[in-house]
């Protein structure tokens, strides 16, 4: 099977400063791929490059049959949906407005939401258990609720590639579980879901493969259980798990009863 996202010697920079280099990744439809690594390592930058909001610095980036070379942006149209870690949405929009506007995208000024748009948007809110938020304005929600609305918006288009920046951050236990189930469902439907995460202990529950970034380069890519090894994480995050055991949550949480 051909990868739906692939990079060759990809290099990324943020405002002229090199962030990541030597990225060679292949990601496939139907999998959930997590990107982990220390703060500021370039996880969001990578998602933004794939989403087409950032020109790449060097190498090559392919997605959904489109290619971007050095200093170009990828343009994969609405086959990609992106949800930021910190939604910067107009505070006066209602949750339903957000999902509908997301579904409709830019396009014609004459466009009006069809009955289908409305129904799909409500279903997307329903799927994440937040139908009751539909009429509520973004300013009247907690940060976790806003995150859930953004997730519902990104999942509402049935895109081939979902780029979710820290989808579980600031969600409560129940919403984390709902979000993880929804992400798995998207992968089952055949989408590639790329997430960034700091919740390493949750990765086994919903992720297939993990890409570890550290020091500006990828240091590991593989199935969760192969990658989340103590020595690798010690190197990647620059800590000693043995000495700081009390401060670091056990990674062995695969059996947490969430269902």
């Amino acid at each position: 099977m051909d990868p739906i996202v692939s990079t060759r010697s990809l290099a990324l920079a943020y405002e002229g400063n090199p962030v990541l280099s030597d990225l060679d990744i292949d990601a496939y439809s139907g999998e959930v791929l997590a990107i982990v690594g220390p703060n500021g390592v370039g996880k969001t930058t990578l998602l933004r490059a794939i989403s087409g909001s950032l020109a790449i610095a060097g190498g090559e980036l392919r997605c959904c049959g489109k290619v971007a070379g050095a200093r170009a942006r990828l343009d994969a149209g609405n086959r990609i949906s992106y949800a930021p870690a910190y939604p910067d949405v107009d505070p006066w929009l209602s949750a339903l407005d957000v999902v509908i506007s997301y579904r409709m995208g830019p396009g014609s000024p004459w466009a009006r939401p069809s009955e289908g748009d409305r129904r799909a948007s409500e279903e997307s809110l329903e799927r994440l258990g937040i139908r009751r938020l539909a009429p509520r304005r973004m300013s009247e929600m907690s940060s976790g609720e806003r995150k859930m609305v953004m997730l519902a918006a990104a999942l509402s288009r049935g895109s081939d590639v979902l780029l979710l920046d820290e989808p579980l951050a600031s969600l409560d236990l129940r919403n984390q579980s709902v979000a993880m189930a929804a992400i798995r469902a998207e992968a089952r439907r055949g989408a590639l879901v790329m997430v960034t995460s700091h919740e390493l202990h949750l990765l086994r529950l919903y992720v297939d493969r993990v890409l570890v970034l550290s020091g500006g380069i990828p240091v590991a890519l593989g199935p969760v259980e192969d990658v989340l090894k103590e020595d690798l994480l010690e190197r990647a995050y620059g800590i000693s798990l043995r000495n700081e055991r009390a401060l670091v949550p056990s990674l062995d949480l695969g059996a947490v009863p969430l269902k």
Binding site: L93, M104, P106
Partner: peptide, 17 residues
């Protein structure tokens, strides 16, 4: 239409082209 997408945030609007 573009301004409506911009209301969802700069990054989201950029990802929509």
């Amino acid at each position: 239409g573009h301004l409506e997408s911009l209301m969802l945030g700069d990054d989201v609007a950029e990802s929509m082209g």
